[in-house]
Design a protein around this nucleic acid. Sequence first.
DNA 1: CATGAATGAGAATTCATTCAT
DNA 2: GATGAATGAATTCTCATTCAT
Lengths: 192, 192, 192, 192
Amino acid sequence: MAKPIDEAKHAAILSSAIHCINLHGLHATTSAIAKGAGVSAGTLFVYFPDKVTLLNSLYLALKSEIMTSLAHAFPAEGTIKVKAFHAWKTYVIWARQHPERRHVLQQLMLSCFITEEAHQKAQAMLKEVHDVLAELGNSRNGNNVAFITSVITSLAETTIDFVLKAPADENKIIDMGFRMFWQALEISPDQQ
Amino acid sequence: MAKPIDEAKHAAILSSAIHCINLHGLHATTSAIAKGAGVSAGTLFVYFPDKVTLLNSLYLALKSEIMTSLAHAFPAEGTIKVKAFHAWKTYVIWARQHPERRHVLQQLMLSCFITEEAHQKAQAMLKEVHDVLAELGNSRNGNNVAFITSVITSLAETTIDFVLKAPADENKIIDMGFRMFWQALEISPDQQ
Amino acid sequence: MAKPIDEAKHAAILSSAIHCINLHGLHATTSAIAKGAGVSAGTLFVYFPDKVTLLNSLYLALKSEIMTSLAHAFPAEGTIKVKAFHAWKTYVIWARQHPERRHVLQQLMLSCFITEEAHQKAQAMLKEVHDVLAELGNSRNGNNVAFITSVITSLAETTIDFVLKAPADENKIIDMGFRMFWQALEISPDQQ
Amino acid sequence: MAKPIDEAKHAAILSSAIHCINLHGLHATTSAIAKGAGVSAGTLFVYFPDKVTLLNSLYLALKSEIMTSLAHAFPAEGTIKVKAFHAWKTYVIWARQHPERRHVLQQLMLSCFITEEAHQKAQAMLKEVHDVLAELGNSRNGNNVAFITSVITSLAETTIDFVLKAPADENKIIDMGFRMFWQALEISPDQQ
DNA sequence: CATGAATGAGAATTCATTCAT
DNA sequence: GATGAATGAATTCTCATTCAT
């Protein structure tokens, strides 16, 4: 790779970017990010050609981290419900552990800086999860996989918001959210 | 008595802000907003003391618009399910009709510019809707009104995303989303 | 005169200008001055064509006020020392009573806004005082009237500074300052 | 180690500020000052965080320069009159050589931009001179050191004004001013 | 005349990016 | 590669002045 030598600096810059963007939004300045990473303003541009590229890299890094979490200890042999619960719980816990990363990711997803290419790479990484959801979707609701995916995501987001507000009830809320999600899937396509 | 303050200009600035922020995010410049509203750069600051105040006003204006839509033709005499469906459908259709307003509102809600005071004013405006949701929450799931509110909101957001992608299926998707939501509420607090 | 009708407004604007400039220097804005005078931003420009003219008018008004004070109860029949003490005391007391006017006058005199014409008009107003000083100068130090004038002024300014710091000792300081001034004049032009 | 911070540029900015403020008062713009110093608008803010800090730095730089002049060739072994004459002459000549610096210093001293801290730092620098004046004050007029200080300063200012108007008579005026000052000190506290 | 909204040319300051060291 | 001073276009906001009401 043409990547510069010091992998640690690359990571430090992304990590500092998370911290700065969490606090100041996408207005976070490159020099603040550089300072937070312990490098000079100029060095940041050795690792990332410009700020937009940095933001896209950060977006992919965060998405990738979530994917890695989901892949870990994945119950490949379990029932579909077990798989779904694994994904659900993993995501909620990741977000609980890293609320600032989630906040940054939300801002990046809404921003006009993320390129179509980055969106597609992120999509590709989701493949494994997508397969589980496809299985779910197929077994339940016609072929509306994309819709199911979005519903699970948004219910998960809501669950996370509440876990963050009431950490003590984490397990209770995770369960309750998952039950709502599971129940939601019980509809039949033609039911009124 | 000089030129009286021009309500139309106030509205034009907010409207231009929606357009600019939709395209360029919160980086949208005040001078672009002013130009889009057909006023000079300085005039914007006659109507809003500074950019942050403009953003907060915009936030409240959008929230207020949604509330007005919901209040219109509200089935005060209907069953709880009828009321909930009215709210659901109204919101989804508003967002379908004004995707750029929704996008701007999402960005504002994530941004660090909205003051606590504005959040509280918005909350207060939601009172009517909140009451419906409270009724729902009480009749179903213990007292978890806040959680129910968030779930309905997030499911609605997801529904909107899909309506925007497939406008032809609008009614089908609205129904499907609402059924998922309704079904989700069927869980009992102690169910495993 | 082409002057607009309301003499009271003219005065109110000058009075407000004194207050504003005392607090914020020559950066004081015309709209702040107008508001302080109880008139609208536009009305100020009915009475003064522009800000520079306002500042020059203010300069002349303050100089004129001092002249009026000096002329009042002037001991035309007294000895030269009596006349000088009258002038000295009158000026010091005016400044003690109106420290903000003195502060504004100092700023105006240093500023680059006062026209040569205004300076000359002020000079002309001083004629009476100038005559006393000329008499002083002639009786003592050759013809160095201008220098004497400056010396008396600067000693007076210093005296004022101290009266303002220690109002209780006003009379003592006024006397002490005057004695220093009088003593200073005792030099002979060729003395070493 | 990148470009080291350029002391010459720092000085050039202060020097340009003197020139601009002399001509246009404290309204002198930062960009005019930057241009005059041969640096870009942004560079000025590398050396001074904001305009007010620049003005305070300039104030201290000018005061410091005067102090350095006074300290140079100070007749530490001379009589009190010799010391006083050294101070007097040094100051008058400095002002004659740098009338624009004196004009700027006068404006800064009257302005509302100079912080209390800067005033105190300037005061501290004056210590040596203050000691001479204290000696003067004590030997003559009770303990009125502060008053004596002010008198000498104001007489010096007057002297400078006249030297600037008639450079040919410089020495004559310096002597005459000093004799007036010296004579002024001859008063006894209780003399009428 | 009085008003104050409208104007737009600046003003101070920021910041992504470059480049000499 | 690393540094951080230098840059200057861009940005928010100000304010003397005008003019429609």
